[in-house]
Design a protein around this nucleic acid. Structure first.
Lengths: 142, 142
DNA sequence: TTCACTGCAAACGATTTGCAGGTCC
DNA sequence: GGACCTGCAAATCGTTTGCAGTGAA
């Protein structure tokens, strides 16, 4: 289930093994949001031989190439997700780590308004909601 | 311009010198948003003798006591501001570091709706807008 | 061949922690 | 007096970087 090398070539990156592995990991993992540590550990258990430093480098390159988006949830560690176009916001369960995405056009609109009213040109924006998912036992890890 | 010790006592904290200094700093500084490093440096230049570790400890205690609110902007370092009740969102200039606050009831309302629709009990939420302030020369530092 | 890429280990910046001594009530 | 605080230095955590070897085109 390895990724098409062209996708990397188009981004100006050589299609090396570590890159293909990381990219396919994001495309096939059921968790959309992964930290560098997550990626590293998954690759380890898969028997892949990739250094943690390389994971960090590749993730940053992918972010710059627009393939991934980096987020800073409260955890202190950065998490990445596939960039599939449209902007969206996040609801993070502080108990189980589950992340749900949503997008509200009205919120988007009012953010832009708030910024322009104050003379700001928006570069990016992020809305994080931290809470507890009340759906019986938390569906994810502890 | 030292703070009323009762405010600390009420929070269950002994009214020690470092705590009073830090608290009064937040109340008298013209910058509402300060990092631990900021606080430490200001205290140094004021001739105060407070350790960086103590600053970190005090800031965390104040946050737990509800006196301060901690934010994680993109910078990588945490910033704190006085907790004056009402929730509000932030617009951060990525060039000069200026922080403006705003609050939009409609956005608040729709956040709550989005969370409850997905079975989440909101614990906290933060909306950060990163941009560039177009008001001629950036009013703050470089 | 050649230059980009990699792994490893050391370096880093922000924050935390262990500990011996000092302080508030 | 005793529990709580403090400063200092060492430890931790996430992340970055220097360097010598490896691999894609």
């Amino acid at each position: 289930m390895m990724r098409d090398p062209d996708e990397l070539k188009n981004a100006g990156l050589k299609a090396t093994l570590p890159r293909l592995k990381v990219l396919s990991l994001f495309e096939n993992s059921k968790d959309r949001h992964l930290s560098a540590e997550d990626v590293y550990k998954i690759l380890l258990t898969t028997g892949e031989d990739v250094g943690l430093a390389t994971v960090y480098r590749v993730l940053t390159q992918f972010e710059q190439a627009g393939l991934l988006v980096r987020h800073h949830f409260e955890s202190g560690k950065a998490v990445f997700e596939l960039n599939q176009g449209g902007h969206h916001d996040h609801i993070v369960c502080i108990k189980c780590g589950r992340v749900e995405e949503f997008c509200d056009e009205e919120i988007e609109k009012r953010q832009k308004l708030a910024a322009s009213e104050r003379g700001f040109t928006i570069q990016e924006h992020s809305l994080y909601i931290y809470g507890i998912c009340t759906k019986q036992p938390c569906p994810h890890k502890a």
